[in-house]
Design a protein around this nucleic acid. Sequence first.
DNA 1: CGGGTCGTGGCAAACGTTTTCAGGTCAAGG
DNA 2: CCTTGACCTGAAAACGTTTGCCACGACCCG
Lengths: 319, 319
Amino acid sequence: MSGSKHPVSEVTRQRVLSAAARLSFEPNRLARALVTARSQTVGVIVHDISDPYFGDIVKGLEDGLHVDDYRLFVASSDRDPEKELSYVRAFHAHQVDAIVFAASSLTEPEYIRALRDLTERFRARGGVIVVLSDHLLEAPKVHFDNHRAAIEMVRYLASRGHRNIGYIGGPPDLEVSRVREAGFRAAVSELDLPTSPDHITSGHFTVTGGGAAMAELLDRVEVTAVLAANDLMAIGAMRQLLASGLSVPDDVSVAGLDDILLAEYGPVPLTTMRIPTYQIGREGASLVLQALDGEDLVAVHLEGEIIERDSVANIASDA
Amino acid sequence: MSGSKHPVSEVTRQRVLSAAARLSFEPNRLARALVTARSQTVGVIVHDISDPYFGDIVKGLEDGLHVDDYRLFVASSDRDPEKELSYVRAFHAHQVDAIVFAASSLTEPEYIRALRDLTERFRARGGVIVVLSDHLLEAPKVHFDNHRAAIEMVRYLASRGHRNIGYIGGPPDLEVSRVREAGFRAAVSELDLPTSPDHITSGHFTVTGGGAAMAELLDRVEVTAVLAANDLMAIGAMRQLLASGLSVPDDVSVAGLDDILLAEYGPVPLTTMRIPTYQIGREGASLVLQALDGEDLVAVHLEGEIIERDSVANIASDA
DNA sequence: CGGGTCGTGGCAAACGTTTTCAGGTCAAGG
DNA sequence: CCTTGACCTGAAAACGTTTGCCACGACCCG
């Protein structure tokens, strides 16, 4: 007998325990879940589980949930609203105790409405929702401030004497793209740096996307530094610069956001901001556990850390 | 009503379907599983989900299973036998329809015995086991031949005129290290290449591990090419060579195995063998599905592909 | 016109647990 | 000796489905 408050004598307890051990009996969690309305199961939705960014987060989640004997379903939405919704429905049908949205939400209004509807229904059944990034859903949240991260990177570049800074953003239909770009704009205006629509470009969150965006930027405006919305794009930008015969960081400095493995070992070690992905997952797990315990929660905030490598030159006059 | 063969008239069918839609009713999978003895659920055990190698495999699995409406539990064993066993037990308790072992098994005999016991019990209940690598468990298997992969890379290097080839192996307690090194040795002897214990070194499966091993190799023996047991180590070796003032590939060629992202975008684009990780997952998924359909299965074999980039020079005399 | 068949609907049992509830036994206290 | 609890045990209901079975009417055929 496992964990009930049913009174039972020590002798019978031993008797059944030993019998269970002898037959290596494992209680059927499904049957248990049916009556307790707790499946000891949580589902996480990411963009793509093969992306190490999400892999790290999921690992943190898994580690945090494992100690409390929760199992983790994983689902990749591939950024497809329809697929994401279908996973939410499936998780609901499987009676998961919580759904974790690890990725920032898509912005399509039709989808948002449907998602709101689904999650509301899920909550009504006692389900817990937790989000691990900027998300349009109202829920307990692990918050890494992408807005501020972009601001801090710009400040950092400015502190190294850069005033003419270009920005390479991500796909506009992603919340995280918008937030980081907004941060960039805010910092530029805060520091009163020269700017123009030409300073800002965008592309896919990939190396080639970053390369193409950099090529575009080079055509349009003269900059001493470029901030990319993620490291993959930063690497792409770097390669484009190198291919154009420019030196990094002597001609143009490049900075990224994320701190992926490639940042350290790429063509020029990349100065970037480390995002505490594993920690985000861990915090998400404890949020889930607390919410399941009936606690009211708000948001927990996590800080990034600037990793200085070789891709940003110091051109400050006092240097 | 979903999928039963209970006869029902078209009009009632529509009536209940529309009612279900109106209330957005989702049948409780747990209750269904309880009676059908099928949970539409499979569990996968990897070493570490944050490792992109496993991330890719899991993505393949997920994609393959999603179309048949199966959900995927993921578990990272962290190479800890105890943890792996506990996950197997948990999966069993959750009545998963199949357990997939994505990682090669640990070799500790006590653990193997326990695992055999557990899986036997699981099978007796109708559960399906599938393994995605060399594994001591007898089960339908997706097989990527690491032995042959190493051989082919050596043959490739030899075909470019290299005869004096060094090898940087992985940690000796991992099955995959042993298999790849055995492949290297077999190829060297097959091709009658010069060799000695000094030609072979090893280290951790990391960039720094590869760098240290390369430094060691440089001290001991003169080679025109180096094969590393994985790309991370190859990148490390490359960096070490570059740092020693040597050119890659002009002074020393470097080849790897795996084809990670860093291989393409590292200091020198790395010639390596692509392991079809995603495909391994996909094939694993169809093996699971077929086994669940009651089919008898053996093994499916997958081939790697040499990706030629810039890190290997052609020094053949006829070049 | 009656018996058999076919098509459909409804009912009940079952899946493996947890939880509630009603006893039942025994020791202590009146 | 009877009552009162304390302590335990066993039975029964419930969770939300699927599935097997039976019943009922309509229709066809002899």
